[in-house]
Lab assay of single mutants.
Amino acid sequence: NKFNKEMRNAYWEILHLPNLNEEQKNAFIQSLYDDPSQSANLLAEAKKLNDAQA
């Protein structure tokens, strides 16, 4: 299933973003579980936030 793979990839990438705190990571990961079809968008948002907090 495409979403499972996308979701897993997004999950791991978000988990390893160095500039997000636990609360931010948890919020993105919760959103992933709530709507796996948004994995790519959530990952993009997480990366933007990560870069902004660098």
Results as ranks from 00 to 15, higher is better:
42 L>P: 02
24 Q>G: 03
15 L>I: 12
22 E>V: 12
41 N>F: 14
24 Q>S: 09
49 L>V: 11
1 N>K: 07
53 Q>V: 09
31 S>I: 05
34 D>S: 13
51 D>P: 04
15 L>Q: 06
48 K>T: 08
52 A>I: 08
23 E>D: 07
32 L>I: 04
14 I>D: 00
10 A>P: 00
30 Q>L: 14
42 L>W: 14
3 F>N: 13
11 Y>K: 09
38 Q>Y: 08
25 K>M: 12
48 K>F: 09
28 F>Q: 01
50 N>Q: 05
16 H>P: 01
33 Y>A: 01
21 N>P: 05
42 L>R: 12
51 D>G: 11
41 N>G: 10
35 D>R: 15
16 H>S: 09
18 P>G: 09
27 A>H: 10
12 W>R: 11
35 D>Y: 10
1 N>D: 12
19 N>L: 05
28 F>L: 08
18 P>N: 14
32 L>E: 00
22 E>R: 15
28 F>A: 04
30 Q>F: 15
34 D>Y: 06
13 E>T: 15
39 S>K: 04
9 N>L: 14
40 A>T: 09
13 E>A: 15
19 N>W: 12
5 K>V: 02
14 I>S: 00
35 D>T: 09
7 M>I: 06
11 Y>T: 04
1 N>L: 03
41 N>R: 12
1 N>T: 04
43 L>G: 02
53 Q>K: 06
36 P>H: 03
40 A>Y: 15
53 Q>Y: 10
19 N>T: 03
33 Y>T: 03
31 S>W: 11
34 D>A: 13
49 L>P: 01
26 N>H: 12
13 E>N: 15
54 A>T: 09
50 N>T: 02
14 I>W: 00
43 L>R: 13
43 L>D: 01
7 M>S: 03
18 P>F: 14
51 D>R: 13
12 W>I: 03
23 E>F: 14
33 Y>V: 04
35 D>I: 13
46 A>Y: 04
20 L>H: 00
23 E>G: 09
18 P>S: 07
46 A>F: 02
11 Y>H: 05
3 F>I: 13
32 L>D: 00
21 N>M: 11
32 L>Q: 02
1 N>I: 06
28 F>S: 04
37 S>E: 07
5 K>L: 01
6 E>I: 08
41 N>W: 15
51 D>L: 13
33 Y>F: 14
22 E>L: 13
41 N>D: 09
41 N>P: 15
37 S>I: 08
13 E>M: 15
45 E>D: 07
13 E>Q: 15
19 N>M: 12
37 S>Y: 07
29 I>Q: 04
17 L>N: 01
48 K>Y: 12
47 K>T: 02
30 Q>W: 15
17 L>K: 02
10 A>E: 00
